[in-house]
Amino acid sequence: MSITVVGLGNLLMGDEGVGVHAVRVLRERLAWPDVTYLDGGTLGLSLLPYLEEAVYLLFLDAIRADAPPGTVFRLSLLDEPIRIPLKVSAHDIALPDLVALLKFRRGEALQAVELLGVVPERVEPSMELSPTVQASLPDLVSWTLRILQAWSASERPPREQRAKGIGWAGGSDVFRCAG
């Protein structure tokens, strides 16, 4: 079994880099032998080769949602058909594209793809997280722990246990991580 946890975001843009900050914390706090942590930055499609061995994939990133800054969301990215819109630049290639390509190439071998997203407060040139988003890091760690434990037990959470919440493109499983 292979689990990869990827932090995404730009470290120079304040809260936009929360995923990378989180992965740096997790590397220390949850150093499990079968878990690979990756600082994915904003590499886009170039990340693909680093993800293709994974059976379970967890992304950590900033996410825009109608919720207060610091709120943590959990989204399942595997089950939903993903429509990738037209690109203006190679740099527009983002997470949904990566997941679509992985699904196309890996098929059934890919067991789970989840995203933990944090609503940012400040996206502007800075190496620091805002206090609000900084305060959400413990939440992020504990949610990561839960997900990794579930995966390590080689069980996906049963579908019915996944709460229905804010729609990711209307219908996939998105829910706000509380407590």
Binding site: E16, I63, R64, A65, D66, F73, A94, V123, A169
Partner: peptide, 9 residues
């Protein structure tokens, strides 16, 4: 180059 946040909706 800098921001790449995507949208939940």
């Amino acid at each position: 180059c800098a921001a790449h946040i995507y949208d939940a909706q």
